[in-house]
Amino acid sequence: MGTFLLRRLMRSAVLIVVVTFLTYFLVSLTPGDAAYTLLGARATPEQLQALRHDMELDQPLVEQYWRWLSSALHGDFGRSLLTQQSTSEVLSQRLEPTVSLLAGTVLVSVALGCLFGVLAAVRGGWLGRLVDLVGQMGLAVPNFVLGLILIAVFAVNMRLFPVSGYIAFAEDPGLWIRSLVLPVCGLAFGVIGVMARQLKVSMEEVMQREFITAMRANGYPQRSIIYRHALRNAGLPVVANLGVIVVGMLSGSVLMESVFALPGLGSLLVQASAQADLPLVEGVVVVMTVIIVAVNIGVDLISAWLDPRVVRP
């Protein structure tokens, strides 16, 4: 178990380095570098040159990246080029809405996805067909379109929830939840469909296996067969896929934040990349990659807990 986790962590570190370097490389290609952004179009070439030298932008890319990486390891992500705010500070302000949105979506979609998946597999019939339909529709309606529809119906027409904006948890937990309901629904709908459908197919396959027949024949309680044995086995591929689902969710959250005007990491990224604010872009990418890494390690731990064959001593 220890070596398994260690290997996982090593791989995660590699992932973070690769991703941040790629981003660094990409943003460095932006026409008009940071010096240009700071001084504006009227600056003379000499002024630009001087600032570039000050900011060490004239050094090789790999060196710049290395410097960034070593200070990032010490918790210093640099300052925003435009506002001169500390990147870590900006990120910490923007983290809460995104994490709230993601956590809410994961919670809702795992709970409802499992519920519908199991019910559809066990009961079949119209519920099964409904899950199939929602599974496909959930993907066919892009989540930001669904967000728009939710706003039109529940915020504009019925006035049940705010049209947009975010209230921090510390400010008012009730309003915090209200501000999250629609974005979470919009983001979770497709995921619920996908998960329910996947679990249904997986459950149906597991229910045909010999060990389920053996348990039924030998009088194991019906409930235990379905919820303890079949679900556990059927959940394996679904859990394994959770990492990919969260990666997809992260992309979806960028759009959701834009639709609902949530001041999260996604909207920060859109804004920062438009302004070529490299330290901010890097910061967002690091945080998002860390989220993905954390989720993947969590998924691995759950898989290992569900299935003893995953970890070989």
């Binding site: 790629l22 990409l26 996604g266 998002m288």
Partner: peptide, 19 residues
Amino acid sequence: AEILMSLPGLIILITVLAV
């Protein structure tokens, strides 16, 4: 492939479009 699959796609695309 494993690394690529762990990348947040839209975020990379936004960065690409900035370039």
